[in-house]
Design a protein around this nucleic acid. Structure first.
Lengths: 208, 208
DNA sequence: TAATTAATCACCCCAATGGGGTGATTTTTT
DNA sequence: AAAAAATCACCCCATTGGGGTGATTAATTA
């Protein structure tokens, strides 16, 4: 086996921070190189610590965890960030992942799973708590009871790609007028009267 | 604890199918109610079996697993579908999830993890193999080195929502000409000359 | 501090697009 | 047999979209 995994912790709650540090530091193959109570504190020195993985809380004083992610990534491009938080709102989760987090654990996660996730994330995995995985998977799932027909859905997807009627007609080998007709039916079914509204409603209801 | 979890297996490889059936059937709390070698076979009787969870292979003779998902969901709306396959292409994975699969395991998954995942999926979780989770999480991550400025990214996002220049201008409280100017710069930076191409390139490179 | 980059607005042009009407024919599905 | 889906046609016209060419004022970075 290789060298120990170097872990840094950013967590404002002192009890938790020390708890994690003790837990991880006591584990064979793991090394806690530093721990901070805020991003601002961390920013000063974390580049020298050169952790492999950062355990990051979201509810932090000053710069919040979500915004800290890209900043940390800039300081340490090869470092993995593992979110460890109580927040479970979809927005928070997706923003964290979009900003570069490689995993997302909620704070009820058992110690063993945290330890395992640190290793997993460094090996290119994407550890998530069960409830997070549920949300993530659900975000992919389309509405099975769409009012739109197959063709309509297909055309609405192309509209979502910014394509014009003409482009859509060319792509589907059908007449421009047919495309118009489909779009009119889409508008009727969704009760909207513009591309933007159709797309918005379709995305909200996962029709596309 | 409640009653046993009723599991159905759809897998064309006989050895594997029987292996899974034996493995799961022998586990306390699990009950294999049926196993089939294709969707067509399953379609005839699976509604009577009323499984809680279906283990589904993707590479099936006849109707492939991906297309089978919505059909199975229609037959058994409250049943969870867990994909168990060797396929790891992004497209397959995202299509499976979009079609209604609740979890995705690759075939190298250890037995214990399969057993655990069946329970997890029925409890509303979203079990995934490590490599799948990696892909899923990566699909959320935006490109940190976007050539676009914040404003440009914002405007491109609105374009991706199908909004017109006028709508964008109104939403951002800036002049229509300013929006035009930004769009021109976006086109310059991305080296495209249409909304569709800009969106396509931006989505490919995860700029939005 | 100097030089870029970002963000804002202005006015030229014109073909193409988008949305609204109204209607018809042919498959496919139910 | 009836309903839904998919196809095409022609009416109208204001809005949009893309191409040019510039300019001014922050903000950021070198």
């Amino acid at each position: 086996m290789g060298r120990s995994i170097k872990v840094s912790i950013i967590e404002d709650d002192e009890t938790l921070r020390e708890g994690y540090a003790f837990l991880i530091g006591a584990t064979e193959g793991y090394d806690v190189v530093s721990s901070y109570c805020s991003y601002d504190e961390a920013a000063k020195k974390i580049a020298i610590d050169r952790p492999d993985v950062i355990l990051l809380d979201i509810e932090l004083p000053g710069v919040n965890g979500i915004d800290a992610i890209p900043k940390l990534k800039k300081l340490l491009p090869n470092c993995y960030i593992l979110i460890l938080t109580v927040y479970e709102s979809e927005k928070q989760i997706f923003n964290a992942l979009a900003n570069g987090a490689s995993g997302y654990l909620t704070k009820n996660t058992p110690s063993a799973k945290i330890i395992e996730s640190i290793k997993e994330v460094r090996e290119g995995g994407g550890p998530m708590s069960i409830n997070i995985a549920r949300l993530v998977i659900r975000s992919f799932q389309k509405n099975q009871e769409s009012p739109l027909s197959k063709r309509e859905t297909q055309i609405l997807e192309l509209i979502g790609e910014g394509k014009s009627r003409g482009q859509i007609a060319g792509e589907l080998f059908i007449d421009l007028e047919t495309v118009r007709s489909h779009i009119k039916n889409i508008y009727l079914k969704l009760d909207v009267n513009s591309r933007a509204d159709a797309i918005k409603l379709a995305r909200q209801n996962k029709l596309i």
